[in-house]
């Protein structure tokens, strides 16, 4: 009787210690930002920007439209890309990677002194160019687009789709010679206790 009581008390003590250990542990570690161990959430996240930018560049390159420019690399300026999602995000996350990838192809270079509303990416370069009366680069392409969000929900599952639409306009003809759409869909299922 005494032994069994002692045994149960020891068990309870061990349980309490284990609970303390479980709740007290926390670990922080580096993960590869482009690797498979990044956290997946229903919000738009770093993987989505990377995937959308990569696929858009791939589509642009595969279309063969970039060779239409008389001289390569052709100059591109980033126009308006509307964020029509519920999230307040910096569109540069998309355009930054996109521009870098396009530059690497050798088919496009980006003008950093020309921006929508006369707000350039590099104000200092613009000011210096004006001071030296340098010629503005002749923009051949402009990049514009929109990012949208679509939410649907059933009793147990919530789904969000992010729709990326981008177009490349040839300034001379004012025609969108390339346009594409990419969708990234994520689902979140209700847990056992009905809590998301």
């Amino acid at each position: 009787m005494k032994f069994q009581k002692l045994f149960s008390l020891s068990g309870l003590a061990l349980l309490s210690t284990a609970l303390l250990f479980t709740s007290g542990c926390r670990s922080t570690e580096y993960v590869d930002a482009d690797g498979p161990r990044t956290i997946v959430t229903r919000d738009i996240n770093i993987q989505d920007w990377a995937q959308a930018a990569d696929e858009m560049v791939q589509s642009m390159v595969e279309s063969g439209v970039l060779e239409r420019a008389p001289e390569l690399p052709a100059v591109m300026a980033v126009s308006q890309i509307v964020n029509d999602t519920s999230e307040s995000v910096n569109i540069e996350r998309l355009t930054g990677r996109l521009r870098a990838s396009l530059n690497r192809t050798g088919k496009i270079v980006t003008a950093t002194t020309i921006g929508l509303g006369d707000v350039p990416d590099d104000p200092l370069a613009q000011r210096e160019a004006q001071r030296r009366s340098a010629e503005r680069p002749e923009v051949f392409w402009t990049l514009s687009g929109v990012i949208m969000e679509d939410n649907v929900r059933t009793r147990r599952t919530a789904q969000t789709t992010y729709i990326f639409i981008l177009r490349l306009t040839e300034v001379d003809s004012q025609l969108a010679l390339w346009e594409d759409e990419r969708r990234i869909t994520k689902q979140e299922s209700r847990g056992f206790l009905g809590i998301f």
């Binding site: 069994q4 009581k5 045994f7 068990g11 309870l12």
Partner: peptide, 8 residues
Amino acid sequence: FLRLGLLS
């Protein structure tokens, strides 16, 4: 008691 101990 025994069961409680084992469970814990």
